[in-house]
Design a protein around this nucleic acid. Sequence first.
DNA 1: TAGATTGTTAATCGATTAACAATC
DNA 2: TAGATTGTTAATCGATTAACAATC
Lengths: 216, 216
Amino acid sequence: MNKDNISKSVIRRLPRYYRFLTELEENGTERVSSGKLAEIMRSTASQVRQDLNCFGGFGHQGYGYSVTYLKGEIAKILGLDKNFKAVLVGAGHIGTAIAAHMKFENLGFRLVGIFDNNQSIFGSKINELEIRDVSELQSFCADNNIDAAFLCIPKDEAPEIVGSLYSSGVRCFWNFTHYYIQGDYPDATVENVHLSDILMTLCYSMNEAVEKNEQS
Amino acid sequence: MNKDNISKSVIRRLPRYYRFLTELEENGTERVSSGKLAEIMRSTASQVRQDLNCFGGFGHQGYGYSVTYLKGEIAKILGLDKNFKAVLVGAGHIGTAIAAHMKFENLGFRLVGIFDNNQSIFGSKINELEIRDVSELQSFCADNNIDAAFLCIPKDEAPEIVGSLYSSGVRCFWNFTHYYIQGDYPDATVENVHLSDILMTLCYSMNEAVEKNEQS
DNA sequence: TAGATTGTTAATCGATTAACAATC
DNA sequence: TAGATTGTTAATCGATTAACAATC
């Protein structure tokens, strides 16, 4: 059933399909064609059909795709029902924002622990969840079968933290640091978010746009 | 001097070159070959040379690249010295994290205003910068020649906010919402960060990894 | 049945990698 | 000079787009 070797580009589009299908469903739309979906996705009908066919024939010729069915299939493909158990390490600004703001239960995860090394915030809560001493991290993860960790810590602290997470069985990392996890743990599943890199690319584009304007 | 049509893939790698060159410089390394740089970048020597040659011949045959010089050139290409004036709209969790955490001055921007619609936080400060009433946003941007806005607001509020920003001359957006700015303003320069999409792709990869393990 | 729209193969386009002459 | 390493062209690989037969 599950085809291998789906390209990263296709995977990256799946959440957007899911998002737009959710909107269509909320509108009460029952069916959608690849053309219409492409319009919403700012894509092409061809790409939509190619993408969806990586996983199986979800459509009906002459009819299109059932919004609810397709949405459900994509949820299954993404694994949004898996509720992987996750901990957050680092309850600074970014960590707190992540913990307080994201609707993990819709995104395939369940946040069950928050850890920090700042004594003064131990015991205070983010969304009902107490902040714990990072020294308990390893035993907590081992005891609770933690699947994933969200890393919102300084880069220099990352190697040690990842080491202890890995040794207690955690293999999945949402990494906001610049530490290169996959270098040290090639079998880890990692998604990096480098906000400063993204901001620099925005700076480049802005700079380009300004120069183009000056020329004309 | 400035070559057009540089592909997005190349641009996205520039911040990483910059980052690693900074590290090399801090180590006191004076020169680096494309091969060595590729190793650090987890790339290939060929790609490094192709990338850098999009912008000009920064190297010397038989020698390699001067770390300091190359770093400087990439900074110029990215426009990191431009210090674009930016405002943050939305001082909730994500907004506060962005404002407090990012070193804008190293990333091409200067944060000069923070706005929110929550009366109870007006006047309180993030990094010396007072939170203002969003009703002053439009006049503030017009008066202060603001280049860019960082949007950390709910999706439904985005169209109105972007409208008022656009009308006071802002053309550059770092967009944490799911509002599709470029649809309404095709000449805007936009970088989107959809954290929930990224988390879903992590869920997919994790799900894949689990299934692969179960098979074996 | 006729019209619509998929699933799928083929063609195109772009990005990465390999090769090598130029040259420091 | 000889060795190293770039800049650049050519070859490969992968992703997107186009085309069309299958079929609801």
